[in-house]
């Protein structure tokens, strides 16, 4: 047990407190949707991205096709690309396997912590990867616990479980609305998605709405700069 490892462990409580309840809610929801323990844990083990796992469960429930679920997961999880790109310049000295371990387990929460420590000049790979691994194990275990608990719950609506997914979107959306182009992207994406749904775009509505939203937001940001 070296001190880098211990530093990683000491940094883990915020991750633990963040993942455990959400992981349990995910396992519960998957169980209520009729997904067995194997695939429920498969999503946590291989995908390890909460919002997209909730989305997948809900889309499977409404009978969406394979391609549209994967496409939507791609768009939902694409924010990790930017986080990864944001920390990449600092990790030029890391070994390839260390970068894979950090990036493969990168989440909203771990990104926030890593960028904090990296900015302080602490680039210790062992501490960072230990932190990620603890979060990973907690996520998988809490999904399993949630799935088991699901058997005990008879009326998920009375627990507000049907609102776990929209509430999660709200919690992720607000911090991402930093400036006018971001708010425009969100408003356009939301409106386009509703309109496309009403027009019968089905499961593709969110995917296409998001592309429209990001594009209109970019136009607003470019024209805003041209005027200034």
């Amino acid at each position: 047990m070296n001190s880098s490892f211990r530093r990683g462990v000491r940094r883990s409580p915020p991750i633990l407190l963040g993942y455990a309840p959400v992981g349990m809610a995910y396992g519960l929801l998957a169980q209520q949707t009729g997904i067995e323990i194997g695939p429920t844990l498969g999503l946590s083990l291989f995908v390890f991205a909460g919002a997209s796992q909730f989305v997948a469960v809900s889309m499977l429930h409404s009978g969406s096709g394979v391609l549209v679920i994967i496409g939507t997961a791609f768009v939902v999880n694409f924010r990790h690309f930017l986080m990864s790109a944001a920390i990449a310049p600092r990790l030029a000295k890391w070994k390839i396997w260390q970068r894979l371990a950090l990036g493969g387990m990168l989440t909203d929460e771990s990104f926030a912590l890593h960028s904090l420590y990296f900015a302080q000049g602490d680039l210790d790979p062992t501490a960072a990867i230990t932190l990620n691994s603890i979060g990973y194990v907690v996520w998988v275990m809490s999904s399993a616990v949630g799935h088991r608990l699901g058997v005990l719950i008879e009326n998920p609506k009375a627990w507000g479980l049907d609102f776990a997914l929209p509430a999660m979107f709200v919690g992720l959306l607000l911090p991402s609305c930093r400036d006018k182009p971001a708010v425009t992207a969100a408003l356009t994406g939301g409106a386009a998605s509703v309109i496309l749904s009403l027009l019968g775009a089905g499961s593709w509505a969110a995917f296409l709405g998001a592309l429209a939203g990001a594009t209109v937001g970019t136009v607003i940001s470019v024209t805003g700069e041209a005027e200034a």
Binding site: P166, F169, L173, S176, A182, G189, A192, G213, T218, S221
Partner: peptide
């Protein structure tokens, strides 16, 4: 420009998933 577009995907997709959940009851 690509960086800007990419950074706007997050708010756009989250709102695009949220809004129909809220407004369109199946």
């Amino acid at each position: 420009l690509a960086e800007r577009w990419l950074s706007l995907v997050a708010p756009a997709i989250l709102a695009a998933l949220l809004t129909p959940e809220l407004l369109l009851d199946r």
